[in-house]
Amino acid sequence: MFQIDYIEIIGLIAATCTTAAFLPQVYKTWKTKDVAGLSLPMVLMLFIGVALWLLYGFLMKSISIIIANSITIISIFLLVYFKIKHHKK
């Protein structure tokens, strides 16, 4: 099903770095409920882009792309949820 070779290992390391870099923003937003600095259009565009990367990962059978983008899309979904829930009118 999935082939793990040195190229995929590089992808897994890159996926860990890029996904881990995104998580502090989600945590900070969750703890502070401060969404003023989040642009909803940017977050939605990022969501679409990551969804497409996830689809690409499945089509290419790349475990690194699938794992990274699965975690990232959940994180982005949380940011969208926080932005809508805590948005001050």
Rank of each mutant, 00 (worst) to 15 (best):
A68F: 10
I76M: 13
K83D: 00
A51I: 09
S62D: 01
Q3G: 06
V35S: 14
I10S: 00
I67S: 13
I65L: 11
V26N: 11
K31R: 15
S75I: 13
T19G: 04
I84P: 12
P24I: 10
I63K: 12
K28T: 13
M1T: 13
S64W: 04
L55M: 07
L55K: 06
F47N: 08
W53L: 03
K85W: 02
M42C: 14
I66M: 08
A15T: 08
A14V: 03
I63M: 07
A15P: 08
V26S: 09
D34H: 13
S64G: 12
M45I: 12
K61M: 14
L52T: 07
I7Y: 03
L12A: 13
G49S: 05
I10T: 00
K33Q: 15
T19E: 05
V80M: 15
W53Q: 04
V35K: 15
A68D: 00
F22G: 07
T18A: 02
W53K: 03
A14Q: 03
A15S: 05
Y56L: 04
S39M: 05
V50I: 01
C17G: 00
D34R: 14
I4L: 02
S64L: 05
T16L: 07
M42D: 08
S62M: 10
F82Y: 15
F82T: 08
V50N: 03
L12S: 13
I74E: 05
I71R: 02
G11Q: 02
M1C: 07
W30R: 15
I13H: 05
F22S: 08
T29A: 14
K28W: 03
I73V: 11
F2D: 09
I73M: 15
V35E: 14
K31H: 03
I13C: 07
S64F: 05
Q25R: 02
I13A: 01
I7R: 04
T72C: 00
G49V: 10
D34N: 15
L38H: 14
I13K: 00
G37F: 13
I74W: 05
I7W: 06
L38V: 14
T29H: 06
W30P: 13
I65N: 12
N69C: 00
I65D: 10
I73D: 02
L54R: 04
A14E: 08
F22V: 09
Y81E: 07
I10R: 01
D5N: 15
V50M: 00
L54G: 04
T72S: 15
A14R: 07
I65H: 06
L78R: 11
V50W: 04
V35M: 14
